[in-house]
Amino acid sequence: MPTPTINPDFATVLEPLGNGAGDFFLAAGLYQAHKISFGAAAALAGLGYEEFHYRLKEHFGHGFVVAEETVEDDLRLVEALVDRRS
Rank of each mutant, 00 (worst) to 15 (best):
M1Y: 07
P2H: 12
P2I: 00
T3P: 13
T3D: 11
P4F: 01
T5L: 08
T5V: 05
I6M: 10
I6W: 15
N7P: 13
P8Y: 09
D9R: 14
F10L: 15
F10M: 15
F10Q: 13
F10V: 14
A11P: 07
T12A: 15
T12Y: 05
T12H: 10
V13T: 10
L14G: 04
L14Q: 09
L14V: 00
L14I: 01
L14C: 07
E15M: 06
P16F: 04
P16I: 02
G18D: 12
G18Q: 08
G20F: 02
G20I: 00
G20S: 03
G20K: 01
A21I: 09
G22Y: 10
G22E: 14
D23I: 03
F24A: 07
F25K: 05
L26W: 08
A28Q: 07
G29P: 02
L30Q: 13
Y31T: 02
Y31D: 07
Y31G: 05
Q32K: 15
Q32P: 05
Q32I: 09
A33P: 01
A33M: 07
F38A: 09
G39Q: 10
G39C: 02
A41E: 05
A42N: 09
A43K: 11
A43M: 10
L44E: 01
A45H: 04
A45F: 01
L47E: 05
G48Q: 05
Y49C: 00
E51P: 01
E51C: 00
F52A: 03
H53K: 13
H53S: 12
Y54M: 09
R55S: 01
E58V: 08
F60R: 03
G61K: 00
G61A: 03
G61N: 03
H62Y: 15
V65M: 04
V66M: 10
V66E: 06
E68D: 15
E68T: 13
V71R: 08
V71T: 08
E72C: 08
E72K: 14
D73I: 01
D73S: 08
D74G: 05
R76M: 06
L77D: 03
V78T: 06
E79V: 01
E79L: 10
A80I: 02
A80V: 03
L81R: 07
D83A: 15
D83K: 15
R84M: 12
R84G: 05
R84T: 07
R85V: 04
S86K: 13
S86M: 05
S86T: 12
